[in-house]
Amino acid sequence: MQPEQAQPNDVDLLKAIARQDESALAELYDRYRVILFGLLVRILNSREEAEDVLQEVFLQVWRRAADFDENRGRPFTWLVTLARSRGIDRLRSLGARERVAIAGAREPSEEVSDAVADAFKSEQRSLVNTALAQLPDEQKRPLMLAYFEGLTQSEIATKLGAPLGTVKTRMRAGLMKMRELIGNQSASFGF
């Protein structure tokens, strides 16, 4: 299945889910499980926790599909925002000890088939990773800490031992650069 071709159908799927159509939920799950699970594993560094959170995410989609406003963004953006938000909440609810343990023991990703890899936007992934590779580490690091660990600017400043103003400037500069590199193409990819 080509997500970019199916993109218009995501809205229809969410409308069907809002009407309590189980098959629509199953289809949406099949379409995005790999990318969302990958995101959650990256945030939580635990497949078990990630599965638990992914289940919560799709139950939330089932209950709140009617809240989706297609004028505010794409279904993909909505799904990723929900998943990240739930993942960060779970990460925060874990004690500091678990977080340290998790950080020190990254689990290897499960192999995915070529078909699945095709299905979750390998082109976009390549584009984003290329863009990130072009960012100086001092700009990339704050973005990663904010996005995957849910840290605020003050927490990042403390963690990196940098002044808050510097962190703000670097974070903004990094995002501007990313937008410059992928911004024009992201819409066509359905971000």
Binding site: T77, E110, V116, R125, I182, F191
Partner: peptide
């Protein structure tokens, strides 16, 4: 919408 792109940078996992 742009920031969501960072999610794609995570390794895919089944």
């Amino acid at each position: 919408a742009m920031v969501v792109g960072l999610a794609v940078s995570a390794d895919p996992s089944e």
